[in-house]
């Protein structure tokens, strides 16, 4: 089987992305999403401890 052509495709595609939407109150308050949004927001602004890890490992935070 040629797996190179068997990658699953979505039902529809769009060439452009929709406008941004403000985060809902639920995402801002959700413990996981709030933390991850904060981490993404600070990725390029805050110098953090080096934390890239090998796949077999989990340093956690």
């Amino acid at each position: 089987m040629d797996h190179r052509t068997a990658i699953p495709q979505p039902a529809s595609k769009t060439d452009s992305l929709p406008p941004m939407e403000t985060p809902s109150a639920s995402s801002a308050k959700h413990p996981v999403l709030a933390r991850l949004l904060d981490e993404v927001r600070n990725e390029n602004r805050v110098e953090v401890a080096y934390d890239r890890v090998h796949n077999r490992h989990n340093r956690g935070r």
Partner: peptide
Amino acid sequence: HAVFIRHVIDRLHGFGLKGFTEHA
């Protein structure tokens, strides 16, 4: 990967986070 990532996107959409949409 595909079914999981699409589920993650669906869940994010459910929380009002609609910035990511698949495109070609």
